[in-house]
Design a protein around this nucleic acid. Structure first.
Length: 528
RNA sequence: GAAGGCGUAGCUCAGUCGGUAGAGCAACGGACUUUUAAUCCGUAGGUCCUGGGUUCGAGCCCCAGCGCCUUCACCA
C-alpha cells in the first residue's frame, strides 16, 4: 500500500499509476480549456434518479398514424423483447418528459459516435444515451474528457432505447466534478476488506449495496428514535468523559484533562447518568450514543460502538420486553424488510412476541443439571473443564450458561431471571432475592439486548458496589463504587425498567451483515 | 494476547519443480449511431509488503518484522 504522499507526488512508485493520474489531469486541463469548471458549480432543479424512473408512465410511443401508445406493462421486465414490440407497433418516435439528473459515472460504453454512460446517485442508477449528432460538438468535446468516477449532470429526455432500457437521451452534459483517482474494478469493486474500510468512500461509491446498507442503518436509528418518541420518551446527551467508568464490566479508555490535571475515562455505558436523571424526574428517558471499551476487536466488537439505553419510571423488565419487540418491529418496517431476515444461509423469524425462557430452565434443559443443586453443578462444571475452586456458584453457573446454552440460542428468545449475584444493578425478585429481574435477548447466539428491573435501594446498591465477586478483579467488575450514584439513589429513584440495545448488532441482524465492520462507517484501523 | 491463512500492475486475481513476471478490468491509440461487465485490433504499465539469510540464481525456501483476514481469549 502506498502512502498518501507517494500517491500524490512525483515519488509515485509506478509509471502506470503516474500515467493514469497524468491522463486524468490532462483531461482536467482540457475541460478548463473548453471553458468549464472541472470541479463544477451548484446544480439546481435536478431530480433523483429513482424519481426520474418513476416518470415512466409519461413516456409514450407515437405511431405513424399519430396515435400515442403508452409503454407496455412488461417493459423493463426480464423477458420483454423491445424490438419485437416496436415492430408490432408501426412506431414513429418516442416522447418523454424532459429531465435533469446528476450522479457519478459508474459504467461507460463507447461505440464511436455514441456513448452509453451509466450514472448513479443515492437513489439508483440510470443510463445516459449520448449521441454525437444529438448533443452537438461542444458537449461531444466534453464527453471525450469524461472518465469513470467523474460526477456529471445531464439534461435530456426520458425514453427507452431500441433494446428496451429506460435512458436519458442527453441534450446537455455538465461536468460537476472531475475525479482524479481512478475507481476500482468496475465489476468487482474493492474486494480487500482492509481497503474497503480504509477507503470507505470508495467502497460506498462503487461497491454494490454498501451505501444502501449504511442508509438502512440511518433508517433503523431514526425508527428507534421515532418509536421511543411516540411512547413518550425524551432523548438526552450524557457526558462521555467520566471520572468513574461504571455501568458495565469493561476496560475503559483513559484520557486526561490538562487544565484540571485530571485523569478521565471514556464512558463504557450510559446507565448511571440516565438513572440520575430519573431521580431528577425524567420519567421516560433514553440516550442513543457512542460508548468506548478498551478491548479486543473482532467480527462482533469494535472499540467504539453505539448503544441505546432506555429507562421507564414505574415500569419493570417486562415493560422493556414489550418495548424491545416494538423497536425491532418498527425498525424492520423502516427498512422495508419482512419478519424474516437472512443470516448467512439461515432464516431468522423475527415475528413478535419473542419466546421468553427462564435462565435456570434453559440450563436444566441444555445440561440436565439442576442449577440449584450446587453439588451437581460443581460436578458438571468440572466435567467440562470449568474451574470451580474458590469461585462464587453463580459465576460458575454463568460460565456453564455461556459455554453450553448461549450458542444454542438461535432465538429470538428473551432469557429471563438471572442469578442475582451477577447483576449488581438489578432489583431482586420480591419472592426470591437470589434471582434478579433481568433479561437478555439472544438472536442467533448473539446478545442483542440486556434489561433490568432497576435496583433503586441505595443501601443494597452500596453493598453490591462494595462486594467483590469471587474471581473478578475490580477492573472486570460491573460493581465499581460510585458514591455520587448511591447518593442519587438516596434521593429516591422510582422503580423502573431499563433496557440496553447494541445498535450495531441490531443493524447487523436486520441487514444480514456478518461483521460489525460492515455496519460501522469507519471502524478502528491501525494508521496507514 | 495465541494459532492458522493471506500480502504480486491503479483494481480483481493467476504464477507449476527455485531459472530473469502473467491475465481480466481500468488507462492510452484505432474501428464502430442502440450498448448492457459492449465488441474487435494495437500500446503501455511491476519496490512481487519490509529487512535479513540460504542458493550460481528467490515472487516461490528459511528467519525476523509490519499489515489484514479467520478462529480462540477478553467482551456487547
Amino acid at each position: 500500500m502506498n502512502s498518501e504522499n507517494n500517491m500524490e507526488t512525483t515519488g509515485s512508485n509506478s509509471e502506470d499509476e503516474a500515467a493514469i493520474l497524468a491522463v486524468r489531469r490532462s483531461k482536467l486541463q482540457k475541460i478548463e480549456a473548453l471553458g468549464h469548471d472541472p470541479f463544477g458549480q451548484r446544480f439546481d432543479d435536478r431530480s433523483y434518479i429513482a424519481d426520474i424512473r418513476a416518470r415512466l408512465p409519461e413516456v409514450c410511443l407515437m405511431t405513424k398514424s399519430g396515435e400515442r401508445v403508452s409503454m407496455p406493462q412488461e417493459f423493463g421486465s426480464e423477458g420483454f423483447d423491445m424490438r419485437a414490440w416496436l415492430t408490432s407497433q408501426d412506431a414513429q418516435e418516442f416522447q418523454g418528459p424532459k429531465v435533469r439528473a446528476a450522479g457519478r459515472i459508474i459504467l461507460h460504453r463507447d461505440t464511436g459516435k455514441l456513448h452509453f454512460i451509466d450514472i448513479r446517485d443515492w437513489t439508483g442508477r440510470i443510463q445516459l444515451f449520448v449521441g454525437r449528432e444529438q448533443v452537438g460538438p461542444e458537449n461531444w468535446e466534453l464527453v471525450q474528457c469524461l472518465d469513470l468516477g467523474d460526477l456529471i449532470g445531464v439534461d435530456g429526455t426520458l425514453r427507452p432505447t431500441k433494446t428496451g432500457e429506460l435512458s436519458i437521451f442527453a441534450e446537455k452534459i455538465h461536468i460537476l466534478c472531475k475525479a482524479l483517482d481512478p475507481p476500482p474494478d468496475k465489476h468487482k469493486g474493492l474486494a480487500d476488506p482492509e481497503l474497503r474500510q480504509r477507503l470507505r468512500y470508495v467502497d460506498m461509491a462503487y461497491n454494490e449495496g454498501v451505501l444502501e446498507r449504511f442508509l438502512d442503518r440511518t433508517k433503523i436509528v431514526q425508527s428507534i428514535r421515532q418509536t421511543l418518541a411516540k411512547s413518550g420518551f425524551v432523548e438526552i446527551e450524557g457526558p462521555t468523559l467520566h471520572s468513574i467508568a461504571g455501568g458495565a464490566a469493561a476496560r475503559p479508555f483513559t484520557t486526561h484533562h490538562n487544565a484540571l490535571d485530571l485523569d478521565l475515562f471514556m464512558r463504557i455505558a450510559l446507565e448511571l447518568h440516565l438513572k440520575r436523571l430519573m431521580v431528577g424526574g425524567m420519567e421516560r428517558v433514553f440516550e442513543l450514543g457512542r460508548v468506548f471499551r478498551n478491548e479486543g476487536i473482532s467480527q462482533r466488537h469494535n472499540p467504539e460502538f453505539t448503544m441505546l439505553e432506555v429507562y421507564q419510571a414505574y415500569g419493570d423488565y417486562r415493560s422493556m420486553m414489550d418495548l424491545t419487540e416494538k423497536i425491532v418491529e418498527d425498525a424492520l418496517q423502516a427498512i422495508g424488510a419482512g419478519n424474516v431476515v437472512m443470516w448467512g444461509d439461515a432464516q431468522i423469524d423475527l415475528k413478535t412476541p419473542f419466546a421468553r425462557r427462564s435462565y435456570s430452565e434453559l440450563i436444566a434443559e441444555h445440561t440436565g443439571v439442576d442449577p440449584n443443586d450446587w453439588n451437581a453443578v460443581k460436578n458438571y462444571a468440572e466435567s467440562i473443564g470449568i474451574e470451580v475452586a474458590g469461585r462464587h456458584p453463580d459465576v460458575v453457573i454463568n460460565e456453564i450458561f455461556e459455554e453450553k446454552v448461549e450458542r444454542q440460542l438461535h432465538g429470538p428468545v428473551f432469557v429471563i431471571d438471572y442469578p442475582a449475584s451477577i447483576c449488581p444493578l438489578t432489583k431482586r425478585k420480591a419472592d426470591n432475592p437470589k434471582v434478579a429481574e433481568r433479561f437478555e435477548l439472544y438472536i442467533n447466539g448473539m446478545e442483542l439486548a440486556n434489561a433490568y428491573t432497576e435496583l433503586n435501594d441505595p443501601d443494597l446498591q452500596k453493598k453490591l458496589f462494595e462486594t467483590q465477586l469471587d474471581g473478578l478483579s475490580e477492573e472486570d467488575s460491573m460493581a465499581k463504587m460510585d458514591h455520587d450514584f448511591v447518593r442519587a439513589l438516596r434521593n429516591g429513584m422510582p422503580p423502573a425498567g431499563g433496557l440496553g440495545i447494541g445498535i450495531d448488532r441490531l443493524v447487523m441482524l436486520l441487514t444480514g451483515s456478518q461483521s460489525i465492520r460492515d455496519v460501522i462507517l469507519f471502524p478502528l484501523l491501525r494508521p496507514e
